[in-house]
Design a protein around this nucleic acid. Structure first.
Lengths: 304, 304
DNA sequence: ATGGGGACATAAGGTGGTCTTATGAGCGAA
DNA sequence: TTCGCTCATAAGACCACCTTATGTCCCCAT
């Protein structure tokens, strides 16, 4: 993700900043530079200049201007679609960051395991905001034990965990499933195997693993019927991914965590015969205290 | 995607700019502010100040500084993961934009249909760049006929199309599949149906459609056995999505186009009984002229 | 035909953010 | 103790962006 692009300045020098991308989206939607400027709360000359420098930066004409409005060029339509992806990722970032900031005085306090906080919760928060714009949500992340502790101490209203078991004292509802996937670097011999790996082969191979106690590792041990053999133990999903990409060896990771890498083929998913590497994602709350109000609202968004 | 966040300044005011996010990723990876600064080609004080303003902007401490290095805080780890998603989207943007710019003097000229150019090609280009950093790729987007025309005129080396049929004069290889999905707004009655829609129901319902001649619409007509009934006809996938979200009615769209909306539940996918809404995505080239060199390289990345 | 109003472009000037250089302070190892 | 690494702070330069003010083009309505 990082070396060869230093060649001509970093990403930030080649990709317009978020404000410019938002402007482009607004122009595409409204069909007018001036109208887009008004929506963003800037003046029309500012929008004009900003769009022009974006076109200069990209070396592509994005918008056809005319005395009666502006329309995207063909290239502009493509760029706008890519820009939409960047803005969507920024919205996820924003939703998450807002929840982290508002640790105090929030109407809904959520505790979640890392994987859920990372990949799913911001999306739910965006959906929640769309329906109930005034709900301030705060987010605390930790492992299952930490989530349980926060809920039982009354410091969180709703929790999300991903382990095999539900911590004592909590009721739960399964809200989704998550498959674990065996992944390797594209150059790894497994990436060219004609047929699925067997459970025995997987169990016999040293793997790059998260530290003992992580939810992913629990599920893996259970599925293999024996503790997985560690090649290295690392402390974050990200570190594991980096190690796999660099060719250190295979790993078993959540589908959620490797979606993008599989799509861009930096990682290759290896199919495995007969291992049910599936785990439940659950919402949890103190026994008897069924979620109400905003917590109930959020819960209903996660079903499916 | 757009109204309620105007409340406290636009996204660009609440999300750090790309350079700051890249800095955060570098700090996370290298464990040192100064080392991250060197990697990005800026001075250490600049990195220090930039990181500090990001923390002020977000209202969250991201990094624990010490005289012998810096480590992410718990919140910092989450923010870094969200930042990684934004940066990844920016890399896709950049890969696409570079290909659009380099319309002349490129070693590999690719012509692709809109859906492929939008959702898949930038990822392939990133993977290609990782393996062959010096391959300049140019991209031309258009419908199947346009792709065929460019290939036959020798103005493109490799094409990608998504229709049901392969244009005359071209050889092809199926590289992936794409499922079409019926989608509605969450409030639509279909979203709460206990069981799958029947083909007949779908065929009898007026739908929001792309204009006649689009690849998506061809496949839909074929699957229904009769032309779909239009409720409105719109000119871009994005416009169709916006109409569905606003509650205008159901639509049938590529899985690729609605992945994010389904995940955040702004759209609901409706299952349909017995309609094979599947289409092939194909690489194409002039009959006899098998792809060689960079084209062959790119093609091999798309398999799977 | 002719003015009004919408569209976008251009010019000139202010402002703020972000970079640089220069320096200081804490900690650990030789 | 001294060197090397870490990060922080201060002062100044610079640049990018925004605003205000104006000009041009085109369409429509009077």
């Amino acid at each position: 993700m990082s070396e060869e692009q230093a060649r001509s300045g970093s990403l930030a020098h080649r990709v317009p900043e978020l404000g410019a991308l938002e402007l482009l989206l607004a122009v595409a939607r409204l069909g007018s530079l001036g109208a887009a400027a008004r929506e963003l709360g800037i003046t029309q000359p500012a929008a004009s200049s900003r769009l022009r420098s974006m076109e200069r930066q990209l070396g592509v004409a994005l918008v056809d201007r005319s005395p009666r409005g502006s329309r995207l060029t063909d290239a502009g339509a493509l760029v706008t679609d890519w820009a939409r992806q960047v803005v969507a990722a920024a919205e996820v970032f924003d939703a998450g960051a807002q929840a982290l900031r508002a640790t105090r005085d929030s109407r809904l306090r959520v505790a979640a395991s890392m994987t859920i906080a990372e990949y799913l919760l911001p999306g739910w928060l965006l959906a929640l905001r769309a329906g109930r714009p005034d709900t301030a949500v705060s987010l605390l992340a930790g492992n299952s034990a930490k989530v349980a502790e926060l809920l039982l101490a009354g410091e969180a209203d709703l929790g999300f965990v991903e382990g095999l078991t539900v911590p004592a004292g909590l009721d739960s509802a399964v809200i989704a499933h998550d498959r674990l996937t065996v992944v390797t670097a594209p150059a790894h011999p497994w990436a060219r195997r004609p047929r699925p790996l067997t459970t025995a082969e997987l169990a016999a191979t040293p793997l790059i693993l998260r530290e003992r106690g992580s939810g992913t590792r629990q599920v893996l041990d259970a599925a293999l019927g024996a503790p997985a053999r560690p090649l290295i133990e690392l402390s974050s999903t990200t570190a594991v991914k980096a190690a796999v990409i660099s060719g250190a060896g295979p790993a078993v990771l959540s589908e959620l965590a490797v979606g993008e890498e599989l799509a861009t083929r930096r990682l290759i998913g290896i199919s495995v015969d007969g291992v049910p590497l599936r785990r439940d994602l659950r919402a949890v709350w103190p026994t008897g205290h069924r979620p109400t109000g905003p917590a109930r609202e959020l819960l209903s968004l996660t079903r499916g």
